[in-house]
Design a protein around this nucleic acid. Structure first.
Lengths: 230, 230
DNA sequence: GGCATTATGAAACGCCTGTTTATAAACACT
DNA sequence: AGTGTTTATAAACAGGCGTTTCATAATGCC
């Protein structure tokens, strides 16, 4: 077994600033992963964008997956810091409008305070990684339960827990559809909005259907948990 | 330039049946692509499943993309043959219920007459390939316009074309969400149905919200195209 | 029977991926 | 100045991908 002769790099002057490099890597990875998802983004491209050697990724984060986890955590932390809660108000119906608007803005607004997390979550829904469960319990579930509570409030006792949650899923479906299936929706002739005002208009339409739908459900007693019928 | 010496295989007996091989390849490719999408499925795995040499893929279909296109076409043809139109009935509201049920069955029923096309379409929505546009104009748009017409009928002239189509998108969103974001939805505690009966129940809930929502929209005049207000 | 045509299979090609290794420069401390 | 640790780099590694090459079986045809 002969030992192969290797020589690492010539006399290149090296900038030495671990913090900055780590940061650059996280920044670059955020952008790349947000664009193409976990599987789609390659460490080599990330390293290129961050102007850093490929090996640095493993040096700082252990593996591609480790880097991804940190990116996700960072994005989540940033969003949680600058959080604009869906404005409630005392009225339940108004709260529902607020939630829908918040959700649509989160999903459709690209230049918002969370340019990465929204995209990462979209990719996670499409092709989940090991991080999805964490993401669900950390950011998705709280928001969802919030919505379910609002739904129950709108129904005013007319709907049980299961029914409220099902309705909440349907409402979420209406919101995320415009981002999730954007390619199809746009090919069908609807220009998915990206500006605040247009998004607000879309939100009103979605909230309108949700509110009307809930009213109908309560009226017909479909959502009533302990209904006597058969 | 020396010519390298190669020898192709010993004296293995070869089954020779081009038709059957082509068919086996299409079958296998259907399964693999349906499971993991175009990018996710590898020609090597397809060849393995079809018990066929890798080179056969290119021999018969020119390329991976060629194979994919034929799979898509085949799946579409099969569905179009054994088509169960969403039962209409004279009533517009009943027609809407029928459409929602049809869509949910298409998306959620795994052992239906179209075990492949539904999955392929889901993948196309997530990460479109060159085939998406064709798919939209061939199968998605007709169904969508059908729904939009039903919506307009339910509204009974109370909604313009744009508004009906927007509402139709929202309804589609409610349906596909349960398949599209299945991983998230299930982690939130909702067991996405896979049997006929449960799907029908879900369909009723979705249709209920759609109908109630449309009623609300018409009542509030939100959807009215040439509304005078301001 | 001989011969061109069509199918088939094993291996190679070229390019990509994430990760590891060996080398070396920069720094901290004695 | 010398030593040891941390950080940076180029190259190698191992394996996957879609595709191509080339020898060879099996077939159809004269």
């Amino acid at each position: 077994m002969e030992k192969r002769r290797r020589d690492g790099g010539g006399a290149v002057l090296r900038e030495r600033d671990p913090e900055a490099r780590r940061e650059r890597l996280l920044e670059a990875a955020g952008g790349v992963f947000a664009e193409t998802g976990y599987a789609g983004g390659s460490v080599r491209e990330i390293a290129r964008v961050a102007r850093v050697n490929v090996a640095s990724v493993n040096y700082y984060f252990g593996s591609k997956e480790g880097l991804y986890r940190e990116v996700l955590l960072r994005a989540h932390r940033q969003v949680m810091e600058a959080e604009a809660e869906p404005e409630g108000g005392g009225d339940a119906r108004e709260a529902l409008r607020g939630w829908v608007g918040y959700c649509l803005r989160f999903v459709l607004l690209r230049r918002a305070t969370h340019p990465v997390l929204g995209r990462l979550m979209a990719h996670e829904m499409r092709q989940p990684t090991v991080a999805l469960s964490e993401l669900v319990s950390l950011v998705i579930r709280p928001k969802f339960e919030q919505l379910a509570a609002v739904v129950a409030a709108v129904a005013g006792g007319g709907m049980g827990r299961e029914a409220s949650e099902l309705a909440a899923h349907q409402i979420v479906g209406m919101c995320v559809h415009f981002d999730h299936s954007r390619e199809v929706v746009e090919r069908l002739g609807y220009r998915v909005p990206s500006g605040e005002a247009e998004i607000a208009a879309l939100a009103e339409s979605v909230a309108e259907m949700a509110l009307g739908g809930l009213a109908g459900m309560v009226r017909s007693g479909k959502g009533l948990e302990k209904r006597i019928s058969k």
